[in-house]
């Protein structure tokens, strides 16, 4: 199996995530697009590990994928807490309206 397919799929998913971050206004949907980008990187790591370096003893690619999954879970928890706080204080989750810290 060629690594071309997984890498192209990961590039496509990453681009879709970039589009979602730029085009969406709802903060929860922006977080979902960030998740898409993180998953695209995971596909890359697993594909490199299993297709190009299958004999590596430390299993670095899959370990990095596991750690990214854990960090992403923490990121979603804190991110949604921030969104809830924003909604309670401002009654909106529109990222265009939240420009308090803009210079």
């Amino acid at each position: 199996m060629s690594p071309l397919g997984p890498l192209l799929l990961a590039a496509l998913l990453f681009s879709i995530g970039v589009y979602g971050v730029i085009a969406r206004r709802n903060a929860v949907l922006v977080l979902m697009s960030v998740e898409l980008m993180l998953n695209a990187v995971n596909i890359n790591l697993v594909a490199f590990q299993n297709l190009l370096f299958p004999a590596e003893l430390a299993v670095s690619g899959q370990m990095f994928a596991l750690f990214i999954i854990g960090v992403a879970a923490a990121e979603v928890g804190v991110g949604l807490a921030i969104v809830f706080n924003l909604f309670r204080n401002r009654a909106t989750v529109n990222v265009d309206d939240v420009d308090l810290m803009r210079w």
Binding site: A11, L12, F14, S15, I16, V18, Y19, G20, V21, I22, A23, R24, R25, N26, L29, V95, D96
Partner: peptide
């Protein structure tokens, strides 16, 4: 749900995918 810069997002994402 979508902001005004949908075209910009499409351009950036498309360019990124073509580059990759």
């Amino acid at each position: 749900l979508d902001s005004q810069n949908r075209g910009l997002g499409l351009a950036v994402a498309g360019a990124l995918f073509v580059l990759l």
